[in-house]
């Protein structure tokens, strides 16, 4: 599903060049649920942005669903992002002026579905996250957990094959975090590939596979989780 080989990403200012990812290689198979952990500033979000085609790597090779994405135009990358990738963010990133229905409608509009098909998908997505009755509510009228469920519904409505979650439970209390995590696991069981960045070792452990990023590179995972468990104990 996802194959990165020797990916590099650096940010340059007038005086400083920062290497966010260095010779980063990773392969995620179809249907996997992979968690990504690592200290702040290690390159987790950069990895996620590159994986989600929001940023382009400075070097290396990235194949998504078997297609090299390095040479795609902005329009092609946007289309691929729209059709194959779903995003879930720590801050939910719902559009505050739009009600839930219209928020979920956003990616479907760019997909070019007709009104009937969009309505069908939105209603089904809201039903999947248990918020059918709140379709006309604004995001501000919902709790944090509900907002995250809306964000998941928005990601699900396009039926993506690949879901990228950046700290999806970071802004939620433990009860709501557990609910969101169960929802993600449920989605993964339907066959959607999920890559989730998290700081929480408990959540990381619930994934099928864990990787850790340190200084922009994939580090030895088992050792790092063990260290984290010792630290938290």
């Amino acid at each position: 599903m996802l194959k990165m080989h020797n990916i590099r990403k650096s940010y340059r200012t007038d005086t400083i060049e920062t290497h966010a990812l260095r010779d980063f290689s990773l392969e995620v198979n179809e249907g996997e649920f992979v968690s990504v952990t690592g200290p702040s500033g290690s390159g987790k979000t950069t990895f996620l942005n590159i994986a989600g085609l929001l940023e382009t790597p400075t070097g290396g090779e990235y194949l998504l669903d078997g297609q090299e994405v390095g040479n795609l135009s902005d329009r092609e990358r946007s289309r691929m992002r729209n059709e194959k990738i779903g995003f879930i963010f720590q801050g939910f990133n719902l559009i505050p002026d739009l009600n839930l229905f219209d928020n979920i409608d956003v990616p479907l509009r760019y997909r070019g579905f007709n009104g009937k098909e969009r309505r069908r998908r939105i209603e089904r997505a809201l039903e999947q996250v248990g918020l059918s009755a709140r379709a006309k509510h604004l995001p501000a009228q919902l709790s944090g957990g509900q907002q995250q469920r809306v964000a998941i519904a928005r990601a699900l409505a396009g039926e993506p094959r690949f879901l990228l979650a950046d700290e999806p439970t970071g802004n939620l209390d433990s009860l709501m975090a557990r609910q969101v995590m169960e929802l993600l696991e449920f989605i993964n069981e339907w066959g959607t590939t999920i890559v989730m960045v998290t700081h929480d070792p408990d959540l990381a452990r619930r994934a099928q596979r864990n990787i850790q990023i340190v200084d922009g590179q994939v580090s030895d995972l088992r050792q790092s989780i063990a260290q984290q468990e010792i630290a938290t104990a």
Binding site: G52, L54, D74, R75, S78, R79, R81, N82, E83, F87, N93, L94, I95, V106, P107, Y110, R111, R154, G158
Partner: peptide, 11 residues
Amino acid sequence: VRRALGASRQS
């Protein structure tokens, strides 16, 4: 957010 959800720069 719109870009992340599939909007191109042109859109």
